[in-house]
C-alpha cells in the first residue's frame, strides 16, 4: 500500500470497439491497463503508434467510457471524468479567430470567468510561457513551438490537477523540441501539477519523467514499468550523458522494439 493516495490510478482498464466488419465482433483496444500516478509526478507512456495511447487518453479525459476496469481519481472511482482532467491533444487546436491571449484564456472563460479577468490572468503567465509580446497576434502568426506553449498555457489555466499531454512536441524540429523539454520541466517544477505525457521518443520520456510505462499494441497493454531515479533538477547535457540514463534507455529500447515489430506485423 502506498503511503499517499494515488492522484490517478487505473485498474484493469479495458476498452473494446465494435469491429468494422460488423457481425457483433469486437476489437480490443486496451486490455487490463494498470497504472499509478502520484500527486505531482511526471509520468510518461511510450509505445508504437496504434498501441492504444489515444484510446487510453480518451478514457482518462472522460471523452469515452471504458468497457471494463475503473479509473480512480484521488482514490475515488471516477464515474464521469469529463472536465476533471486537463487534456492537451497532439494538435494545438488554437482557434484561428481568437488572438493568442484569448486562446489561452479560453478555459477560464468557459468556466465562467469574465473575459477581461480571464485575459488578465492569462497575460500574467505570458512571460513564463515565453509568449510575452505575442498577446494580440493571431495564432497563425507565431511559430510551432509558441503555438504548443500557448496550447499548454490554455490547459494549465483551466486549473486541473492532472494534465494529459499527448505528444505535445511531436511535430517540432529537434532543437526546438529540446528547448521545450527543458522549459516544460521548469514549469512543472514550479507548479508541481501531475502530468501524464505520451511520446514515442524514449529519450524524451526518460529525460522528463519519474516513471515510464512502455505500452504495446493490439490490444494495448502495459508491457513494462521503469522508475527513473535520475536526480533533479535535470539538465539536458548532464542528464542524457549520465551512465544511468544509458542503462535505462537500454532497458526500454528492447521491449519497445518488440512492441513496434508486433504492431507492424499486425499491419502487414
Amino acid at each position: 500500500m502506498p503511503a499517499t493516495t494515488a492522484r490517478l490510478r487505473t485498474e484493469g482498464l479495458t476498452k473494446a470497439f465494435p469491429a468494422r466488419s460488423g457481425a457483433g465482433d469486437r476489437v480490443s483496444a486496451l486490455e487490463g491497463v494498470e497504472m499509478t500516478i502520484d500527486p505531482g509526478e511526471f509520468v510518461s507512456i511510450v509505445g508504437p503508434s496504434g498501441c492504444g495511447k489515444s484510446t487510453l487518453f480518451n478514457l482518462l479525459a472522460g471523452l469515452d467510457r471504458p468497457s471494463g476496469g475503473r479509473i480512480l481519481l484521488d482514490g475515488r472511482p471516477a464515474d464521469n471524468l469529463l472536465g476533471e482532467i486537463g487534456y492537451m491533444p497532439q494538435a494545438d487546436l488554437l482557434m484561428p479567430w481568437r488572438t493568442v491571449l484569448d486562446n489561452t484564456a479560453l478555459g477560464l472563460q468557459l468556466n465562467g470567468v469574465k473575459r477581461a479577468e480571464a485575459r488578465e490572468r492569462a497575460r500574467g503567465e505570458f512571460q513564463r510561457f515565453g509568449l510575452a509580446g505575442f498577446e494580440d497576434v493571431w495564432p497563425s502568426q507565431i511559430s510551432g513551438g509558441m503555438r504548443q506553449r500557448a496550447a499548454l498555457l490554455r490547459t494549465f489555466l483551466a486549473g486541473r490537477e492532472v494534465m494529459l499531454l499527448d505528444e505535445p512536441f511531436g511535430a517540432l524540429d529537434a532543437l526546438t523540441r529540446q528547448e521545450m523539454q527543458q522549459w516544460l520541466l521548469r514549469i512543472w517544477q514550479e507548479d508541481r501539477k501531475t502530468i501524464l505525457f505520451v511520446t514515442h521518443d524514449v529519450e524524451e520520456a526518460l529525460f522528463l519523467s519519474d516513471r515510464v510505462y512502455v505500452m504495446s499494441g493490439r490490444p494495448g497493454r502495459i508491457e513494462l514499468c521503469v522508475e527513473v531515479e535520475l536526480e533533479r533538477p535535470r539538465e539536458l547535457e548532464r542528464t542524457m550523458t549520465a551512465p544511468e540514463f544509458a542503462e535505462l534507455k537500454l532497458k526500454l529500447i528492447e521491449p519497445l522494439r518488440r512492441a513496434s515489430a508486433a504492431a507492424r506485423a499486425e499491419d502487414g
Partner: peptide, 25 residues
C-alpha cells in the same frame, strides 16, 4: 474541427458554449 469540440468538452464547455465559441466562428 471535431477534435476542437472534444477539447472544449474537456474544458467543461456547454452545448451552447461549443456553438458560440467554436461552431459559429
Amino acid at each position: 474541427d471535431p477534435q476542437l469540440l472534444r477539447l472544449m468538452r474537456t474544458l467543461r464547455a456547454s452545448f451552447w458554449q461549443r456553438f458560440r465559441y467554436a461552431q459559429l466562428p
